[in-house]
């Protein structure tokens, strides 16, 4: 249940970031033809783009939609298949614990760095997308593993 809510919020965040990105690009294009130079659009577009991609990527992990080879998992059934899924989810969980940890380190390191065009904006808000991605992906994976274990018991 909680996982559903997190996913919903995260997808919304991604869509909002993507919309900001589209708007910034449009403003940039039009201002160039109007002969005005708007300096902040490029950075806004870049950083909202990164936010959108990482939020989207996390949602897609929960939906198991990232490209993968499923030859093996198509061949096996029942308990073996559940066990395989749990294995894959555990690998992703461990990886995402690392992503969260190093994401926090990176965010801390660059927290006070500035944007180039908008000097008052901190880079920290941009880097924050990495630990958020890592932590949510880890939560999703825990959810998958718990469900897998339940299912495993059901098969017995």
């Amino acid at each position: 249940m909680i996982i559903k809510t997190i996913e919903k919020i995260q997808l919304r965040m991604g869509v909002v970031a993507l919309s900001i990105f589209f708007l910034a690009i449009l403003i940039q294009v039009f201002s160039r033809y109007a002969g005005i130079s708007v300096i902040w659009t490029e950075e806004i577009a870049n950083y909202s783009f990164i936010w959108a991609i990482f939020m989207g990527a996390a949602v897609m992990v929960n939906r198991k939609s990232h490209f993968r080879f499923n030859l093996l998992s198509q061949k096996i059934k029942g308990k073996k298949k559940i066990f395989l899924d749990i294995t894959v989810d555990s690998i992703l969980l461990i990886f995402n614990v690392f992503v969260s940890y190093y994401g926090i380190i990176a965010t801390k390191s660059f927290w006070n760095y500035r944007w180039v065009a908008i000097q008052n904006f901190k880079m920290g808000y941009v880097w924050l997308c990495i630990p958020i991605m890592g932590i949510t992906m880890a939560i999703y994976m825990m959810g998958h593993i718990i469900e897998g274990v339940k299912e495993m018991k059901g098969v017995e």
Partner: peptide, 17 residues
């Protein structure tokens, strides 16, 4: 397109791109 350099080129009458 930002900062003092952009300002300078704008003051000279050109459009920094």
């Amino acid at each position: 397109t930002s900062g003092v350099v952009a300002k300078y080129w704008t003051q000279m009458g050109s459009i920094p791109t």
